[in-house]
Computed example of a mutant assay.
Amino acid sequence: MTLLLLVLFAALVFEYINGFHDTANSIATVVSTKVLTPRQAIMLATFFNLIGALAGTAVAKTIGGGLIDTSFVTIPAVLCALSGAIVWNIFTWWLGLPSSSSHALIGGLCGSALAAAHGNWGVLKWSYIDAKGASAGLWPKVVMPMILSPLAGFIIGALIMYILYAALRKATPRFVNKTFGKLQLVSAAWMGFSHGSNDAQKTMGIIALALFTGTKAGTLDNLPEWLSFLRTPTFDIHLWVVILCALTMAAGTAAGGWRIIKTMGHKMVKLQPVHGFAAETTAAAIIGVASHIGIPLSTTHVISTSIMGVGATKRFSAVKWGIVGRMVWAWILTIPICGFIGYSLMRLAHFAD
């Protein structure tokens, strides 16, 4: 029981860190364009992250049961997965790199599950057809979106920006800035909602997996009656888990993440309100679709490449590609490093038994 409570605590710590680590995803552009102050932007993102987090559970079900064989998963494995993701998130936040919390969690989960299965690679669900007849598993839900979503962000962001350039070619700069300063409030709110609808669900899935695993192993058999709601004989996302994760992410978002906001909103490319609107609208639409079909997308990758695509329409050199290169390396390394940390911690847990 103590170990399960530790897992729940670690999951909420991860959710809180995810909130302030990925706050920049929602508000970097609206801050850099000076439409809102950082404090105002964080309040906006906090509210819409909370609303988005309550919007569904499709992503949570993918994380909790769609990527690994849960029959091999133990509560220590879940704790090791969370620990790997937390370490990487704090490290990249300290460096100001907008890495993916989603991929950190997925990498940690795959690594710890592989160690729990004693190196049996069959524990990882690479590709299969789910009960609804849709493609599922690591390849269609993680690997392909990891490649395609940044490309979509860059291309669609640039395309929307070119369309806006054509539509506004006769408009005055004052009119454009005033109009899109207002419209960016809408796009920033949509981005906050989309971010909450995708990222908050990942921790919901992890908590549900821990409760299901603990119930199956008999760890929760002797719980007092007032804690009986923790027993989860089938993999379900309970309402209290949804509400708890939503509130925790909102609290983390309220804490802000100024290091990453500076990288995405100020260092990567200089934006005006029209650019911020195009980038946020692009990213929010892509993330919203992914949340609906249960893909645990990297919101970081999508908004970052949307900003790149929009910025590149000004002129290709407007994007500071050196900073982009550092970010891409962080993206590439996230899953293998977190997988290695999760695997190593789980192996240490085996030796300690």
Score class of each variant (00 low, 15 high):
Ala318Ser: 02
Phe193Tyr: 01
Gly111Tyr: 09
Ile42Asp: 11
Leu114Gly: 08
Met327Ser: 11
Ser194Met: 07
Thr232Gln: 08
Thr203Met: 02
Asn120Thr: 09
Gly66Arg: 02
Phe91Arg: 11
Asp221Gly: 04
Val289Glu: 06
Met268Ala: 06
Ala115Arg: 10
Val319Asp: 05
Trp240Pro: 04
Thr313Gly: 01
Lys182Tyr: 15
Thr57Arg: 09
Ile332Glu: 14
Ser71Lys: 15
Leu297Ser: 06
Pro76Lys: 01
Phe229Cys: 05
His350Val: 13
Phe91Gly: 05
Gly288Lys: 07
Ile286Arg: 04
Ala290Thr: 15
Thr248Trp: 12
Asp236Trp: 10
His118Phe: 14
Ala41Thr: 03
Trp126Lys: 10
Met146Trp: 14
Gly311Ile: 09
Ala200Met: 01
Ile129Asn: 03
Trp329Thr: 15
Ile42Ala: 13
Ser298Glu: 09
Ala188Asn: 11
Asn198Tyr: 03
Gly265Ala: 07
Leu333Trp: 12
Gly64Glu: 00
Ser71Thr: 14
Gly133Ser: 13
His118Ile: 08
Gln201Phe: 03
Leu50Val: 08
Leu159Glu: 02
Met268Arg: 09
Leu148Trp: 10
Phe316Arg: 04
Met43Thr: 13
Leu105Glu: 07
Ala349Val: 04
Ser100Pro: 10
Thr232Leu: 04
Thr37Trp: 15
Ala217Asn: 12
Cys80Trp: 02
Arg231Gly: 00
Phe72Gly: 04
Gly252Met: 02
Ile332Cys: 13
Lys125His: 09
Val73Ala: 13
Ala284Asn: 03
Leu239Ile: 15
Val59Asp: 12
Ala55Asn: 01
Ala290Lys: 13
Ile260Pro: 02
Leu4Cys: 01
Ala171Met: 06
Val242Leu: 05
Ile261Met: 03
Ile156Lys: 06
Asp199Trp: 08
Ala10Trp: 03
Lys216Glu: 01
Thr215Asp: 10
Lys141Leu: 06
Ala85Gln: 01
Gly64His: 04
Val289Asp: 08
Met204Ala: 07
Leu297Ala: 03
